[in-house]
């Protein structure tokens, strides 16, 4: 079978897989984006009782393979089945999709904390002092001065993190999820045709390329003052 025939026969499978990959990486990154800012503040300015656990969490996640984290949650939760059933959580951990999503959120949160920490540290002290001098409350200080600047600094690094998450989401296929790689493995096992992987590779590259492009557009929207000279 030539590559084109394979694509004609299996394109619905690829699209379904692509959609699952986008969901896993997209929802994972967004949920992590809700958790990370608070924890980044704790990591930087919190009392040691809170900041040290955050540091250990970040170091642990960054120091272990995501596949091991996924297995720890997916297979490891089985060991606590009676307990989880009692709390009504077993129906959550039973589904590989939920476990994969949970792993991606936990992992991406740790990486985003590290990236935001860099961004927060890059905000000039003068801006913070000026905001305090005009009497801003701590909440509006963070909302109006610190985070807007920190996110502009961290934006490119956050884009890298989302790309890493898209790539890492391929691990979901190992726990029987039919994401893009999962569908591809199924197609390969039916056809033994290597072009099955070729199309998957092109789709992953296309997905990354779209993200890079969109991220760059968003960067220009976030900091138009840096791009006024006609350079895009």
């Amino acid at each position: 079978m030539n590559p084109i025939e394979l694509l004609i026969q299996y394109w619905p499978n690829y699209l379904e897989g692509l959609w699952v990959t986008v969901q896993l990486a997209g929802v994972g990154a967004i949920l992590a984006a809700f958790l990370a800012p608070m924890l980044a503040i704790v990591r930087l300015n919190g009392h040691p009782v809170f900041s040290i656990p955050v540091r250990i969490y970040v170091s642990f996640i960054r120091g272990t393979p995501m596949l091991a984290q996924l297995f720890l949650i997916y297979y490891g939760s089985g060991q606590f089945r009676p307990f989880l059933q009692e709390w009504g959580l077993w129906s959550f951990f039973r589904e590989p999709y939920n476990c994969a999503m949970l792993t991606f959120v936990i992992s991406s949160t740790a990486y985003q904390i590290e990236i935001l920490r860099g961004g927060l540290m890059g905000v000039p002290a003068g801006e913070v002092e000026a905001a305090k001098a005009v009497g801003m409350s701590p909440v509006s200080l963070y909302r109006r001065v610190i985070f807007p600047h920190a996110y502009r600094i961290a934006w490119p690094a956050l884009g890298n993190e989302v790309i890493l998450l898209i790539k890492a989401s391929a691990l979901a296929s190992v726990v029987t999820i039919f994401d893009l790689l999962g569908e591809t493995r199924l197609i390969f096992s039916k056809t033994f045709d290597l072009s099955a992987y070729l199309w998957a590779a092109l789709l992953y590259l296309a997905l990354t390329a779209v993200l890079v492009w969109g991220w760059r557009r968003a960067e220009i929207l976030l900091s138009p003052q840096f791009f006024k000279s006609g350079r895009t």
């Binding site: 790309i163 898209i166 790539k167 890492a168 989401s169 391929a170 691990l171 296929s173 190992v174 790689l181 591809t184 493995r185 390969f188 992987y197 998957a200 590779a201 992953y204 590259l205 990354t208 390329a209």
Partner: peptide, 9 residues
């Protein structure tokens, strides 16, 4: 740009 696990397969 490719997932490492895809390269491996």
């Amino acid at each position: 740009g490719l997932p490492e696990i895809l390269t491996l397969f």
